[in-house]
């Protein structure tokens, strides 16, 4: 952990700076993708019924006739003041619309993460054992292969097995209409569908790092000298893994965010992911913008943590 002061200081300053710059880049990308491409909000609201003059009026009213960077700047500054605009569909503030969906998504993502983390840990232990027994073997093939399977296939396979054949759980995960905690059985399918691909991704990335750490000369030499395996792991291997593990965590968070959209929609679970997909279908741009930016921010936050930890490569 000993770190020279200037390196530590510059890391503490540079990493947040880099995160802020990346966040700005992401916001530009999100804004550009949703606002500047053909087919703007006026088309969506007018829905083909409005005349050209009405559309022009609508554009002027919403400021769509101004240059792109100006619209981005006013959008971003409003966001910074906590104003994300109103849903084009319902007219309610976007923040409220999304806020209403967050608890359900938090339950789902939290449960999925609680399953993903031990699975990744297990996969890494197996990868480590393999690396010690077969030093020339790259390993990680199974996990890497599994990351190729589309998540919709995982959803379909799990639904076919658990709901279709075994009839253990309902095929759709409808939340109780009055709110309140959901029945655990409806979480089984979405949680498994989210967690299994995320865990495979995590193992594919981290397992290789573990195997590399175990093949470093000071680790193999410590084993030759007879240093107990537990001490080798504690002193030489685990400290190396901190930064990569946080990067993998960022990947898992991203996977849960994107997977959530798919899984919630497929299983009819009314969370923020389902909101994202239905808003995309309805071209409810402000909601999509905030959800997209929010997911990217979550990933960036974890990456920032990883940047703050000294890299031992």
């Amino acid at each position: 952990m000993r770190l020279s002061a200037p390196a530590g200081l510059s890391r503490a300053v540079l990493a947040p700076l880099r995160a802020v710059v990346l966040l700005a880049v992401v916001s530009v990308a999100v804004f550009a993708a949703t606002e500047l491409l053909p087919g703007d909000a006026a088309d969506a609201v007018g829905a083909g019924r409005a005349s050209a003059a009405q559309l022009a009026g609508l554009r002027a009213e919403r400021g769509l006739d101004r240059p792109g960077w100006e619209r981005w700047a006013s959008w971003a500054s409003a966001l910074l003041h906590g104003d994300a605009g109103r849903s084009l569909l319902t007219g309610r503030p976007v923040v409220d619309v999304i806020g209403g969906r967050l608890p359900a998504t938090a339950v789902l993502a939290g449960s999925a993460f609680a399953l993903t983390a031990p699975l990744v840990l297990l996969g890494c232990v197996l990868a480590g054992r393999r690396a010690l027994r077969r030093p020339g073997d790259a390993g990680g093939g199974l996990a890497t292969a599994l990351t190729a399977v589309p998540q919709v296939v995982v959803a379909a396979a799990l639904a076919a097995l658990l709901s279709g054949v075994l009839r253990w759980v309902p095929p759709v995960s409808l939340l109780p209409p009055g709110g309140g905690p959901p029945d655990p059985s409806i979480l089984v399918l979405p949680v498994l569908t989210l967690a299994l691909p995320s865990a495979a991704f995590g193992v594919a990335l981290l397992g290789g790092v573990v195997a590399d750490a175990l093949r470093r000369p000071y680790v193999t030499d410590a084993l030759v000298r007879g240093v107990p395996a537990g001490r080798v792991l504690r002193r030489h291997v685990l400290p190396v893994l901190a930064a990569p593990a946080l990067r993998v965590l960022a990947v898992v968070v991203g996977g849960l965010a994107a997977g959530g959209a798919l899984v919630e929609t497929v299983f009819g679970y009314a969370g923020a992911g389902e909101l994202l997909v239905s808003s995309v279908a309805a071209r409810d741009t402000p909601v999509v913008q905030l959800l997209g930016l929010g997911s990217a921010t979550a990933v960036l936050a974890v990456l920032l943590l990883a940047d703050l930890v000294p890299v031992r490569s």
């Binding site: 952990m1 000993r2 000369p217 000071y218 030499d221 410590a222 030759v224 000298r225 007879g226 240093v227 107990p228 002193r235 030489h236 400290p239 190396v240 031992r312």
Partner: peptide, 23 residues
Amino acid sequence: GRRWRLTQVGWLAQDPASTLDPW
């Protein structure tokens, strides 16, 4: 065997500098 190597054997590998924990 590990215990024997740990307590009884001094071992200097080829390229010994790389066998020190860099941290």
